[in-house]
């Protein structure tokens, strides 16, 4: 896959080789390579819903590489929620910058934007659908600890039914045919169609209802938030959330050296006491958003080849 001029919309557009290229580039960037590669470039952040962390991460990534950022955030006006005005907005912004980073509450908005834009578009989240740079930074973080992504076994914990991050990451790991374990209460378990797809791609999968039931070793435990809104019954929510809470004891009961990851922000699904453990790498994971986004920006603008 050549990156120059390409939009980054969905993990489904990616091949294993492209993911490896991103990891390799992010690694070079993190080691101080490609400095100033965005000099003279303008990145536009078109955030149709607020997401301060993601927007700051892209802005910071750009500025560290010598680029400039323009943009807006959190436009709630009804005119931009309609498809046609989105197209017009994107066509207009295309003339002002070298790349557009879009965040939009409606699913498919980033794909539509990429079809309207004359510059590459990077999807920074379209509703519950995709957020590919999150997946790239997750993979990059794993690759720093485990050289061969096809050999690591990741356990996903929490809301696996609605979790966009989980779905994309599981799909990406399936491109490497990595074995996976899914741990969730039945009402929040992985969607059947996705499980089937992942298996067809060559990954071995196992499902458990509780962490203590796992009978295989894990290299990474990927924790996600269980949202209150998914439950009609608050008592049921409290029970489930309590069972899936990660504490120092849970970590110690798992495979020695298991790495704990989380897309952040967390609420209380990981006890703060876990932060001090060597196993916890979620802040490092968040910080990896910078080199990974720098790599992506440089690759799509052709300043890194």
């Amino acid at each position: 896959m050549k990156f120059k001029g390409q939009s980054i919309i969905s993990i489904r557009d990616m091949e294993k080789e492209a993911l490896l290229k991103i990891i390799e580039t992010a690694d070079a960037v993190k080691r101080g390579g490609h400095k100033g590669c965005l000099e003279g470039k303008v990145v536009s952040t078109a955030f149709f819903e607020p997401s301060t962390r993601t927007r700051f991460s892209f802005a910071s990534a750009t500025q560290y590489m010598g680029g400039k950022v323009i943009g807006f955030a959190g436009t709630a006006s009804t005119s931009v929620t309609k498809g046609e005005s989105l197209v017009d907005t994107i066509k207009t912004i295309s003339g002002y910058c070298d790349v557009i980073v879009i965040r939009h509450p409606v699913e498919g908005a980033a794909r539509l934007a990429s079809e309207a834009a004359t510059v590459p578009v990077i999807n920074a989240g379209d509703g519950a659908n995709q957020h590919p740079t999150q997946t790239f930074l997750d993979l990059f973080t794993m690759s720093e600890r485990f050289r061969d992504l096809s050999k690591i076994r990741v356990g996903f914990l929490g809301d696996l039914k609605y979790g966009r991050t989980v779905h994309s990451l599981a799909y990406a790991l399936a491109l490497f045919r990595a074995p996976m374990v899914f741990i969730a209460p039945e009402i929040l378990s992985m969607p059947g169609y996705l499980l089937e797809e992942i298996r067809e791609m060559g990954s071995e999968t196992r499902q458990f209802e509780a962490l203590c039931d796992i009978d295989v070793s894990l290299d990474v435990l990927y924790v996600t938030r269980i949202q209150k809104e998914r439950f009609g019954d608050m008592q049921e929510y409290e029970r489930v959330a309590g069972t899936y809470r990660v504490t120092p004891e849970t970590v110690r009961a798992l495979t020695e050296g298991v790495r704990i990851m989380h897309p952040l922000p967390r609420v209380d699904e990981i006890d703060v006491e876990v932060d001090a453990m060597e196993n916890a790498i979620y802040f490092e994971q968040a910080h990896n958003g910078i080199p990974v986004r720098q790599a992506i920006l440089g690759l799509v603008m052709g300043t890194i080849s």
């Binding site: 309609k82 498809g83 046609e84 989105l86 197209v87 509450p105 409606v106 699913e107 509703g127």
Partner: peptide, 12 residues
Amino acid sequence: RNPNCITQSTGV
């Protein structure tokens, strides 16, 4: 069938 799909808006 997804009510939150961009194709639900006119013109797409």
